[in-house]
Design a binder for these strands. Structure first.
Lengths: 209, 209
DNA sequence: CCTACCGATCGGTAGG
DNA sequence: CCTACCGATCGGTAGG
């Protein structure tokens, strides 16, 4: 079997029924970036991964920056599917906060992207690199903060949390839980750290009860 | 003035009385890595920054990995000087926790390294790259966790925090505060987020009082 | 989507 | 510490 047919076989493996080539490329891009970062994501590596030439990729994305932007979009879609959406199905307030965190911990534990948490890494990596990609990462963060803020405000409103709690402080704390779980899990590779993270979340939501 | 004398002038600027060339190189390396990451730190850029040839750097560090390891060491020394040591001078227990966080927030606000928080970024960046550099970053994290654990245990012992508090959970939470402050500050560039972080820390340490 | 190429930069080495 | 070089890879383009 020649190289060409191997490439096609790999692409077929990556592609699901009815899924576009662009979508298969972006799933691979998110996976590579979850290991090597958004800067470390190279067009050559990505081309090899999906069994395509570099110029084939340039037909889909005109530049590395456009590829990075599309990759951030795809990562946001995955996060919404796997973490945000399940949380929205839980009862309003504290249960949504807990469901979001639980969905996130499972997303981490399952190593859904191959490497670590895409947005934890992207925030640290792109934070010091002004430009459209940083803005896209920041916009995702703002969206997640908004979601958490709504859950927290609702929890206070429904007296699941004391009335003197501050939603903004809660958003900061839950962001911290996400980042600490991500960093700790990625460095240790030990699912036990997620047990500790779950305890922290549970206790935090039972405070003042 | 020729290029050669410009280079020497730059090196002189970077060097303080009695400071070794190696030390000046490493300070520049930490600064560059705080912006571009430990992978993004290139020997060519670093050589230009300190006004030296690439091969001049190879006389000090035999490989990029050795340079990265030395850079992690230097960053740890700076963190210990600016954050850990001041905390150790505070009264034992909760005041040490608060002093460490305050020193960290000031370290961030002052933009002490030029870019963001070296170890927040390094943990996310190297977490997915097995090898000696990741181990060095993990070892620093373990050391900081140990320090926080001691402060937390002491706070509980002295009844500054309730006896049902778990030091390990507190370590996780404070790690989260550090990471959330770092990510938030780097993305927004707004010192106001550190005000929120300070409130969270203060409230957390007054819980159960 | 491909082959074939571009200049720039990467980490690293030879020889002084 | 330097100049001068190595092969590999980077992002990107020409032409089909």
């Amino acid at each position: 079997m020649g190289e060409a047919s191997e490439r096609k076989a790999r692409l077929r493996r990556l592609r699901v029924e009815g899924e576009s080539t662009r979508s298969a490329i972006l799933r691979a891009a998110v996976s590579l970036a979850s290991v090597d970062g958004l800067e470390g994501l190279s067009i050559g590596n990505l081309a090899a991964e999906v069994g395509m030439s570099k110029s084939g990729l340039y037909a889909h994305f005109g530049s590395k920056e456009e590829l990075q932007l599309a990759t951030v979009e795809e990562a946001a879609r995955i996060f919404d599917d796997e973490v945000s959406r399940p949380a929205l199905s839980a009862p309003a307030g504290a249960p949504q906060l807990e469901a979001l965190m639980e969905a996130y911990f499972e997303h981490l534990e399952r190593r859904a992207l191959g490497g670590g948490c895409f947005f934890s890494s992207a925030a640290m990596e792109m934070g010091t690199r002004p430009g459209p990609v940083k803005e896209a990462v920041a916009a995702f963060g703002a969206g997640l903060d908004g979601l958490l803020h709504g859950f927290a405000a609702s929890a206070i409103e429904q007296h699941q949390l004391p009335p003197d709690e501050d939603p903004e402080q809660l958003v900061f704390e839950f962001n911290g839980f996400i980042l600490a779980a991500s960093a700790s899990f990625i460095l240790s590779g030990d699912p036990a750290v997620l047990g500790l993270a779950r305890q922290v979340v549970r206790r935090r939501l039972r405070r003042g009860r």
